[in-house]
């Protein structure tokens, strides 16, 4: 089957603004994924096409992009889910470095701002810090994040106000705020109680719909909002 592929291209050394380029690619809709199409274009038609990818199996999260108007991982979307006409653009709301590669520095600096690591100053036990199954269940969902930025870059609140910490940072904060072994929940809640923290969420659900890991992101954001109010941070 022939696929009509349109890709939003941008080379900062050549172009003043992004432009669409079209490619016709032969593909097997049952077997091929968007990433296979991109490889075919790069290897057989235009070697200058630039995009990120690493594991190619939906684990590393490096090939998130805007595919037919929705943020998805190129390695997880099969062609049979999309049809013959496909458009691909870089993640919206993030500065484009080249073609489908976006600058993730702002995204990661917001992630770092919520301290996405275990804080525990108590005496280190001889073996692991144990946790009950029920306590672990509180953070089951939010541990699944692969930091692909699909959620944050799909959020209209983030497009309007890039200072917004964004769904991904809140999800990763949630993972430690509700971790019974952690001792810095109040600090994280204070950071997220800022005007550019959780209150910018408008329950639009783009983040939840875009997450390739199926994380219930809006629910996690609202749980953090409730924790802020209950602890009166």
């Amino acid at each position: 089957m022939q696929i009509d592929l349109r890709i939003l291209r941008f080379d900062p050394e050549r172009d003043k603004k992004p432009h669409w380029e079209s490619y016709v690619v032969e593909a097997d809709p049952k077997m091929d994924r968007i990433l296979d199409l991109l490889h075919r274009v790069k290897w057989e038609q235009d070697g200058t096409l630039t995009f990120r990818r690493s594991c190619a199996h939906g684990v590393c999260g490096s090939d998130a992009m805007l595919i037919n108007g929705r943020n998805r991982l190129a390695c997880k979307v099969r062609l049979e889910q999309l049809g013959r006409k496909i458009t691909i653009a870089p993640l919206p709301g993030l500065p484009v470095v080249k073609d489908l590669v976006v600058d993730m520095e702002g995204f990661f600096s917001k992630l770092r701002s919520v301290q996405p690591f275990l804080v525990n100053e108590s005496v280190v036990p001889a073996r692991e810090r144990r946790q009950s199954a029920a306590d672990r269940a509180l953070i089951d969902d939010t541990t699944k994040c692969i930091l692909c930025a699909s959620c944050t870059s799909s959020c209209p609140s983030f497009w309007a106000k890039p200072e917004y910490v964004g769904p991904a940072a809140i999800v990763n904060a949630h993972r430690f705020i509700f971790d019974t072994r952690d001792e810095a929940a109040d600090e994280r809640l204070e950071i997220l109680a800022d005007k550019d923290g959780v209150w910018r969420c408008r329950t639009i659900f783009n983040c939840t719909d875009a997450c390739p890991r199926g994380i219930k992101i809006t629910q996690a954001i609202l749980e953090v909002s409730q924790a802020i109010q209950e602890r009166q941070v």
Partner: peptide, 11 residues
């Protein structure tokens, strides 16, 4: 479409 993004029920 807003910002190239397809509008779903939530949006």
């Amino acid at each position: 479409m807003i910002n190239g993004y397809r509008i779903g029920e939530g949006m």
